[in-house]
Write a protein that binds this DNA or RNA. Structure first.
Lengths: 254, 254
DNA sequence: GTCGATAGTTAACGGTGTTCACGTTCATGA
DNA sequence: TCATGAACGTGAACACCGTTAACTATCGAC
């Protein structure tokens, strides 16, 4: 069963895809140049030598264009992190985790307008139906992205379990309610991981910490901190110490 | 020396202040109704029965209005947290810390558009001069807000030091670089606290964790989690356990 | 009671997203 | 080969937007 969606694209479809790509590229330039709010259909059309209504042959609205952009950005960020990790030897789980975290921050601070658009401007949960639609494209892209950390975490867990014969330490979370445990199990299922709830919890909270520092740095909420990379490295070192893994070779002094 | 700025407001200044308040109030309604982005000078004027250019007698631009709104929101959020804490007995530092954290989240999830505007839409560091201008009004409001946690943390530190005779435990942050230590000292100085760098570090990272969860919840980045309050409480419990304080009376099961 | 600051007006400019009605191009099936 | 219909692109228009300029009315103070 060959894939139905891409098939063999007609010549017509090829030039159409090229036009779509150019639209998103020009929009990307406006985003990086003057921030999220500066993306304008008319300006895009002007830059492309077209009239504004022509763009409606490719996107039903400006909002749809922004959503498509966000999807691309998620995949770009994911690719950036995966490429950075791919340069490491296969079995270096700890290195992969650190490189993934550091490349996440590196991409974010190097692409602040994109980061703002992805994580603040566009509401992924369209606040419409009962909850979110997991089949919707932006949600799927966000899920693909978040699974990068999830997979690395899962591999780290399995490796140490096998090689050392005992699982990684997990932080003390006393008296986890059944409700929270159920949520954590569901969270692990989304990446197909069969791990203890404590491990799920650790992954989630670590990811939250990473997101927290990076978001605050990007949004200028750390005005006192002159060198956020020092703080970031220190937090990585702290988390690694909690995991009881040695990362001095990666971080050096914190 | 009586305050110079408010003085005895003329009748003229009183009605002017009332108009300014009404403008911000109408803008706030638009914000809560249709999100940031939906705040429009012309719509505000329409709602007030005025013409749009008249608003320029009160704010030099829409951006300035948004900044003023953000300042008010910072103070409102700060007041909300302080009022919640004030209902506790004077010496209950741990309770204050938990109530501050919980009221922060409560305000954020009850005022998602405001939260987005404050922490994402408006750039506090206007990316202009060498760094940020600490005298600028929005930055001052943000500082006043962040000092709520800072003061509570500081008080908790001093209390336990006196009553128990030894300081609170601090997480292991091996080999802190002199650069990071200097930043943490500066961070402590902004709240006039004389605390060890480890304590400064703990405060910063705890605040980052709180911001991280709340921002992800507000921005819909936790799609798998159905009940974020459970996760939030669990993180509070974890941080309390790190502080070696007992909060079961506050949280119950996590 | 005059005078100047203050607050408000209308008109206008250039910009935006979006829709509509109209042509043009082009691959395809009879 | 040619007609057909879908896909693509256009200009005009509508309803907004932020902002500026020129002008008028109001009101407090000397």
């Amino acid at each position: 069963m060959e894939p139905v969606t891409p098939k063999t694209p007609n010549r017509r479809e090829r030039v159409r895809n090229a036009t779509v790509a150019e639209i998103k590229s020009v929009a990307r330039d406006q985003l990086t140049g003057d921030g999220p709010g500066a993306i304008s259909l008319r300006a895009i059309a002007r830059d492309m030598g077209m009239s504004a209504p022509a763009l409606y042959r490719y996107f039903p609205s400006l909002e749809a264009l922004l959503v498509a952009l966000v999807v691309d950005l998620y995949d770009e960020l994911r690719g950036f992190m995966e490429t950075a990790c791919a340069e490491l030897p296969e079995g270096d789980r700890i290195g992969r985790l650190l490189v993934a975290a550091k490349s996440f921050r590196a991409w974010a601070v190097a692409h602040r307008p994109e980061f703002t658009l992805m994580f603040a401007s566009v509401d992924l949960h369209s606040e419409g139906s009962a909850h979110h639609d997991p089949t919707a494209e932006p949600h799927a892209a966000a899920a693909r992205f978040s699974q990068v950390f999830g997979r690395i975490f899962h591999e780290l867990y399995r490796q140490t379990d096998e090689e050392r014969g005992f699982p990684l330490p997990t932080p003390a979370v006393p008296n986890m309610s059944p409700g929270l445990q159920a949520e954590l199990v569901a969270c692990a299922h989304t990446i197909g991981a069969d791990v203890p709830v404590e491990f799920s919890y650790m992954f989630l909270t670590y990811w939250i910490r990473l997101y927290g520092v990076v978001a605050m740095e990007v949004h200028g909420q750390l005005p006192v901190i002159e060198h956020p990379d020092l703080l970031f490295n220190a937090m990585l070192a702290e988390m690694a110490a909690q995991l009881r893994v040695d990362i001095t070779e990666w971080i050096g002094t914190t």
